[in-house]
């Protein structure tokens, strides 16, 4: 279970496995790529803003370039026209990468059962964590982030596409 810190204060050293050390660093410095599409984007801004302050979990560094980030937060309704763009952004991110589907529109199509909306982004993108709500409260998104951290802690590899790897 991660790193035992009791030795640091007394003896000034610690012992751990390298893989666990890397996982510890990885999960506490996830850099999200905020793909804000619609209403959820505003709650995602609140998630980074003062009151909810995601800096407490090491993810305040919102990178707007997919090449510098390892967590894709898809926030908002994904339409068929947008689907190609979302996929392109995902493909540009370096491995290992995780995906959070924020809100019901992204997860299942939600209230938009219409001709233009993709009924769940998992049709074309591997999703690790689904966050419910329309839009989810910032607390819920933080919960989603913690779920990702837990996955990393357990050493679960991020989901991959069955079709094209």
């Amino acid at each position: 279970m991660g790193i035992n810190t009791f030795n640091i204060e007394e003896q000034g050293f610690l012992t751990t496995k390298l893989s666990e050390f890397i996982r510890w660093a990885q999960r506490n410095s996830l850099w999200p790529m905020p793909l804000g599409i619609s209403c959820c984007a505003i709650e995602m801004m609140a998630f980074a803003a003062p009151k909810y302050d995601v800096a407490r979990f090491g993810s305040e560094f919102l990178r707007f370039s997919p090449r510098q980030s390892d967590l894709l937060i898809v926030a908002g309704t994904v339409t068929y026209k947008m689907a190609r763009v979302v996929r392109k952004i995902y493909d540009q991110m370096p491995d290992p990468k995780w995906v959070i589907a924020m809100g019901v529109c992204t997860s299942t199509g939600g209230m938009y059962r219409s001709y233009a909306v993709v009924q769940g982004i998992d049709q074309f993108l591997p999703v690790d964590v689904y966050v419910s709500g329309c839009p989810p409260r910032p607390e819920n998104l933080i919960n989603g982030l913690l779920k990702i951290q837990e996955l990393i802690k357990k050493g679960v590899p991020p989901k991959r596409d069955p079709i094209f790897i």
């Binding site: 599409i37 619609s38 908002g76 309704t77 339409t79 026209k81 947008m82 763009v85 938009y112 059962r113 219409s114 001709y115 233009a116 909306v117």
Partner: peptide, 11 residues
């Protein structure tokens, strides 16, 4: 435009 066209009027 149209990347967020959700078809509200049709709905």
């Amino acid at each position: 435009l149209g990347y967020l066209h959700r078809g509200k009027e049709k709905i």
